[in-house]
Amino acid sequence: MAAFLLSVHVVAAVVFVGSVTVAVSLFPRYARLALDRTTAATAVPVVHLLHRITGVYAVLALAVPVFGLAVAAQLDVLGDAWVQVSMALTVLAGALLAGAVLPGQRRLLQAVGAGSGEQLGGAAVVTARGQRVDAAALLRRLGMVSGVFNLVWVAVVVLMIVRPGSTTGV
């Protein structure tokens, strides 16, 4: 049964987390094009789609840690350091996605909607705290957070493969 749960866990990780990482890393690039008057027409639908993919697949990706926990419980490795570090990194990635990446994407979509026809840097967004923020600054920040988010997943995958200190053969 552990093999079945592990299969679901890996397939869900490849399909759902994989889609999210691709959409998250492409978003800042296309958002830059969407904020530029000359390329906005083609890029605006793309950023809306990328934001949608990020949001929808992020929800579906919740299955990955749940099935991962089930596998770890079956294999009796929940106490292992590599599992616990992976779980902590997964929580960090989830917090980054829900707390920084998705809100950043939403704000940039507002800027794309409000500032259409303006050059990059002309568009500004009002944050939750009521300050007006330059869209270009938001874009740089989102790019950085998105990179960190993807790096966290790389670290988790490496931990899953190397499993330092593990003796299980699965």
């Binding site: 049964m1 992020a58 929800v59 919740l62 749940v66 099935f67 926990l69 089930a70």
Partner: peptide, 18 residues
């Protein structure tokens, strides 16, 4: 139980997220 346990857990989290 092995299969439906995680399915139920995932649904619980998906419901909260949605």
């Amino acid at each position: 139980a092995d299969v439906l346990g995680p399915v139920h857990g995932s649904c619980y989290l998906v419901v909260i997220a949605l």
